[in-house]
């Protein structure tokens, strides 16, 4: 490989940026009301953890996201498999779903508020909506893209329908389904951020909204960083699943870039 230490530099660069930020904040170049120093944010995080505020709100956000994600994923995956496997289900369901999908899921926000008020239901619904569609689309696509030659081979060796689903169809669609899962996780967090700005009484989004009222910029920055961290965690989770479940696939094999 090249002599330039790409990997090391790729980690050092953001660290240097962080140090620059810290320096600028301490040197008075950045006002505390604009961007508090990273050390201030960390101290705020420690304080809020100590008095139990942060864990409580974080847990509320996670529970909300997990519920919405689980509902959306179950619906998206379930319908996707059904439509992928059955022509009848396809003609019954697919076109309607495709039409509804054309609506950006955040555009229904006013409607959600009217339907559910500012309670928990609307937030969960919004997250489920953001999660369901990418999983549905990728599941259907994954099943459609299976090599018909493999399906034919399955028939030749005498596999029944159920065996064919288990041996050929689901594993064949899995790379696409996991791609959809990654997208669904991204959408779920996006939906969470938006949902928590509408009249929440707990959750990290509520923390940020509350902090805005009192100009606690350090809390706002903390919440933004937390959203980022959770996003990264989700991405790592999706990658882990891909490596684990797709080890047969050349692109995900151990040792491949």
């Amino acid at each position: 490989m090249s002599r330039f230490p790409h990997r090391t530099v790729s980690w050092l660069a953001p660290l240097a940026l962080l140090a620059l930020w810290e320096g600028a904040a301490r040197g008075g170049l950045l006002s505390d009301q604009v961007l508090p120093a990273p050390s201030t944010v960390v101290a705020t995080a420690a304080d809020l953890t100590a008095d139990g505020e942060l864990p409580r709100h974080l847990l509320a956000s996670l529970r909300r996201a997990a519920t919405g994600f689980a509902l959306g994923a179950a619906a998206g995956l379930g319908l996707g498999v059904l439509v992928g496997l059955s022509r009848i289900a396809e003609s019954l369901i697919d076109r309607s779903v495709q039409m509804v999908r054309a609506v950006p899921f955040l555009a229904v926000l006013p409607l959600v508020i009217v339907w559910f008020g500012v309670g928990e239901g609307g937030k969960v619904f919004l997250i489920a909506l953001g999660t369901g569609f990418p999983l549905y689309l990728n599941t259907v696509l994954g099943i459609r893209q299976i090599d018909p030659k493999l399906l034919e081979m399955s028939r030749v060796v005498g596999q029944g329908r159920l065996e064919r689903v288990r041996w050929v169809i689901l594993p064949g669609a899995l790379p696409s389904i996991l791609g959809g899962l990654r997208l669904a996780l991204t959408h779920a967090w996006l939906a969470l951020v938006i949902a928590e700005t509408i009249g929440a009484t707990e959750g990290i989004g509520f923390m940020a909204t509350n902090a805005r009222e009192f100009l606690q910029v350090d809390v706002i920055v903390l919440v933004v960083l937390l959203y980022a961290l959770i996003g990264i965690t989700c991405d790592l989770l999706a990658r882990f699943l891909e490596r684990r479940l797709l080890s047969w696939h050349a692109s995900y094999a151990p040792g491949s870039p």
Partner: peptide, 23 residues
Amino acid sequence: RMVVFQEHRLLPWRRVWRNVAIG
């Protein structure tokens, strides 16, 4: 009856012996 096709038609997600034992 069994067929050997022009392409091997092995399932990439199953190990070799499972591809032989399929069905």
